[in-house]
Write a protein that binds this DNA or RNA. Structure first.
Lengths: 339, 339
DNA sequence: TTGAAAGCGCTAACAT
DNA sequence: ATGTTAGCGCTTTCAA
């Protein structure tokens, strides 16, 4: 059962393939009777235009890509129940989806392996591509961004030929730390986070900014933790119990903050009575936790939407030079800081 | 800036385009030195294979489609806060994504307009397609399913040339109703749901089955409600208050059950003390509501995974005849039934 | 082991 | 208004 092509439709309608193409893409360019004949023939044959062929001929696919390496969370039993809530990447993805559809683009999603293979594969099939920070080797991105517009999500601005959307990490944590100090009288603060991440570095700097502004002693570096390791949170807590709890624990992400709170609770300490704990991101789980999590909310869906806008605008005017975008954040005061 | 093609790579490596193709796709068929020359040339030029051209030549895209018409929830202010939790479609989509990636397929997601245009467009670019029930006109699906394997998610089995994955709607509600009757002594039950939906019809029948088995009077038809209308829930509650509350309100979906509970609470009635309310689906919001929602859990991610499996198996052996699949459900007893 | 060449199904000049 | 035709960039026989 060979599927019908323009040729079949053309033959049946007694016209040329060009007319078939026009009947679909530029209906106004063909006489109404002719158009109806073509459309009828197409319907009778069950014609479905081959998008691949069209993409090749037009050299555009009307499709944007998102490399959504989900950190393979689903596979990681440690994290299974986090999946009950949408995480950062999920919410960004949702924004990306909706913005694509509003603009008439389809969305191609890739994931799985984190070597360059999958992402290159996707790059070869889309008009523009968005990727999350730290998920693809830079050489691979460099090559791809020479071919199509690329935007990196939550990646530092850099002169790498790619566009970047990020949020005001530093300002957010500065404001939050400021709150801890002025509203709750915190003096001894620690900052917990993955030291390798640029975002985390910025957040740490924001914490230091606020502390310095108050002439308080600032930690020299973040207390290291892996992205979402509960076990490490427990070890950290053991350490603090041994040497005395700080006034506040500023965490680089909500997930880490929740893990720290769990570990503290398990060790018999109360949050925020014994120690304040804060996060960053604004995921749903933090809204529902006990105590609810004071945090800095990122506009996650807006990050996804912005990525689409940036890609589309470069597609529409290719001469435009790549521009980065930084989105504002919002301090959300809940209970874990003592409020 | 023309992007490099096989021709450019071939020229630079001093070989033919066939050799370039082989070097990438069948490395074992070309002499190692030749292969290295080709790969080096490719790297130097920043070659990214054009997936569209490949798809056309191979007549397969290694890409599966999901038409994820999200009921435009995001646009509907009435529903804004539901979006904080993953809904049915989101969880199915997640299962679909992961299963695609595990099998080396990319995923093309379409949405937005619900006319046939978008879905036909996607159908023209993928090897297989999954759609949710009631989101695409049947004629359109009929045409598409003649071209590529299609599976409808949560759609009744039918001799329409498409495959279907669904769950045991009838059995699930039968068991749940049975519980209401035997464990909580419910006698007067109403069933609330969208009457047009096939799934809802099945669920209603399950309710009737259980009632009949106990020689209890069964409602003649579902009490109608739109998919996710809070306002209607309030009207229903007003009606019940006027004519006397039933013992139990069996709702066709969790979202409707939560809306009904909200309306009852707003009207000063207590659940489950004054009346039991149950749902169907097993969404996260029902786990966290007050009272927590007794429901029938669908294996949502599993639906998505199954859809992928069914598509891939038909792609792998095209002669296999289309087969449907029904997944089991699980009654989840929480507080809203009185447990 | 490598090369030549014929498509894959469509679009878009250009010609009529 | 419609037809002819040359690609789009790749895969894949078939020959050498």
């Amino acid at each position: 059962m060979k599927t019908p092509t323009v040729y079949d439709v053309a033959q049946r309608a007694g016209v040329s393939i060009a007319t078939v193409s026009f009947a679909f893409r530029r209906p106004e360019k063909v006489r109404p009777e002719t158009r109806d004949r073509v459309l009828d023939a197409a319907r009778e044959l069950g014609y479905v235009p081959n998008g691949t062929a069209r993409g090749l001929a037009q050299r555009r696919t009307q499709c944007l890509g998102l490399y959504a390496y989900h950190y393979l969370l689903a596979e990681h039993p440690d994290n299974a129940d986090w999946r009950a809530f949408p995480l950062y990447v999920d919410e960004v993805q949702r924004g990306f989806e909706l913005a694509c559809w509003e603009r008439g683009y389809a969305l191609m999603l890739g994931g799985g392996a984190s070597d360059g293979g999958v992402v290159t594969d996707i790059a070869g099939r889309v008009d523009g591509l968005a990727v999350f920070a730290q998920t693809v080797p830079p050489e691979v991105m460099a090559t791809i961004s020479q071919r199509i517009p690329v935007v990196e999500i939550s990646e530092p601005t850099g002169a790498d030929g790619m566009a970047h959307v990020s949020v005001d990490n530093r300002g957010g944590v500065r404001d939050l730390t400021e709150h801890l100090v002025t509203a709750h009288g915190a003096r001894r603060l620690v900052f917990v986070g993955e030291p390798e991440s640029h975002d985390v570095g910025e957040r740490f700097r924001g914490c230091v900014d606020a502390l310095r502004a108050h002439k308080l002693r600032a930690p020299r570096a973040p207390v290291g933790i892996r992205a979402e390791a509960r076990v490490e949170a427990e070890q950290l807590v053991q350490g603090w119990l041994a040497e005395g709890l700080p006034d506040a624990i500023v965490c680089a992400t909500d997930q880490q903050a929740l893990a720290v709170i769990d570990a503290l609770t398990a060790a018999g300490r109360r949050v925020p009575e014994d120690v304040a704990v804060t996060g960053f991101d604004g995921i749903v789980a933090g809204r529902l936790s006990e105590p609810s999590l004071t945090t800095v909310r990122q506009p996650m869906a807006e990050l996804g939407r912005s990525a689409v806008e940036m890609l589309v605008s470069r597609l529409d005017s290719p001469r435009r030079k790549v521009a980065d975008r930084q989105l504002p954040v919002e301090v959300v005061l809940r209970h874990s800081c003592g409020c």
